[in-house]
């Protein structure tokens, strides 16, 4: 033992105790998310000052800067933060569950089901609101639920671990089926409705008020509560299902929880903002490069970084062609696509 202690190389950053690495990474990513969320509402067609926004001497009703900050822009920024966090975390969990670094929250067909639900509601011309909820997000959630149920039923056998290859193939097949159905609905719908569905599919964080975010919050809270229990199981699952079992992981249970939580997070995020691509694959890989592959650090860091990333992308979407606001889905894909290609080439 003494020889090992004296021969041990100088402690590198990866070898600091896990507690220190966790605090450092979460602290950095958390600050990044917080700063982004505070600064993003300052930018826009009307310039406002942060000092005036938080100036308590002016009553809120007379403080135009505060009204723009909190009422006009903050809902959109918050929507970006929760959707970014949900998609990035779901990406991390699914990549570990499927033992496949190329998996995304949209791989298992949940988002395609969600999109089909939303598009059916749009094409049917459902505009009336049901109490506090509007029909498109509700139909979108219903679609996500149907898709998740079908994939789950196909890939699971009672008491047995999930077959990840069946899960992957079932998800990919279901994605194609739902995509074909979406095209069919668009083909049959009239011009105006088709335009609305196409806009919805681009992904957009313009939620209008805090109400839609509050509607999605219970599902997101449930998803994140489950995420919090998963990281050490995800480490072992990504080494191998059988070796995880021999290290004390209840594999079937962990896999079911991972599937349930990612379906909840993806369904809620897509119902809120449409299928915003690439956040769920770019952010996990980016954070892995910086913070390493230990899911106890990676998962919270990716959620926080995902929040910052999507809010920043949306800032670009709002300002780059101002006064025109382009859908954020276009920006994430334009930034994410080249990154993904670079990653593929680097790994290849």
């Amino acid at each position: 033992m003494t020889t090992a202690a004296t021969a041990a190389p100088r402690v590198r950053i990866e070898q600091r105790p896990i507690r220190a690495r966790l605090a450092l990474t979460v602290g950095v990513c958390g600050s990044l998310a917080l700063v982004t969320c505070l600064l993003a509402p300052l930018a826009g067609s009307t310039s406002i000052s942060l000092a005036r926004v938080f100036d308590r001497s002016i009553p809120f009703t007379e403080n135009v800067d505060a009204q723009i900050f909190f009422v006009a822009r903050m809902p959109r920024v918050l929507a970006g933060a929760v959707v970014g966090a949900a998609l990035a975390a779901a990406g991390v969990v699914l990549q570990a569950l499927l033992r496949n670094p190329l998996a995304t929250p949209f791989t298992l067909g949940v988002s395609a089901g969600s999109a089909l639900g939303a598009i059916l509601a749009i094409a049917a011309g459902l505009a009336a609101t049901l109490g506090p909820f509007s029909p498109v997000p509700l139909a979108s959630l219903a679609g996500a639920f149907v898709a998740a149920t079908i994939v789950y039923a196909l890939a699971t056998r009672p008491g047995r671990p999930i077959s990840t290859s069946v899960l992957l193939l079932a998800g990919v097949s279901l994605n194609s089926v739902f995509s074909a159905l979406i095209l069919f609905v668009q083909y049959m719908a009239d011009f105006a409705e088709t335009y609305r569905t196409v806009r919805w599919l681009m992904g957009d964080l313009d939620v209008g008020s805090f109400a839609p975010i509050l509607g999605a919050l219970p599902l997101l809270a449930a998803a994140f509560a489950i995420f919090a229990t998963l990281p050490s199981s995800l480490n072992l699952l990504s080494v191998g299902a059988e070796s995880a079992a021999t290290r004390g992981v209840d594999v079937a249970r962990a896999q079911r929880l991972a599937f349930l939580s990612t379906s909840l997070a993806t369904g809620a995020a897509v119902s809120l903002a449409g299928p915003i691509g690439f956040v769920g694959i770019v952010v996990p890989h980016l954070v892995r490069l910086i913070a390493g592959v230990d899911h106890r650090i990676l998962l919270p860091a990716a959620a926080l970084f995902g929040a910052a990333f999507l809010v920043a992308c949306d800032l670009v979407a709002r300002t780059v062609l101002a006064p025109v606001e382009i859908p954020v889905g276009i920006v994430t894909a334009m930034l994410g696509g080249p990154f993904f290609l670079w990653l593929l080439v680097r790994k290849g």
Partner: peptide, 23 residues
Amino acid sequence: SRREIARHIAVVPQETHPAFDYL
């Protein structure tokens, strides 16, 4: 439980292929 078993029995499999680049 799996946990109880794992406190007493360890396994060295033929091959181990992690999906991610663990140290």
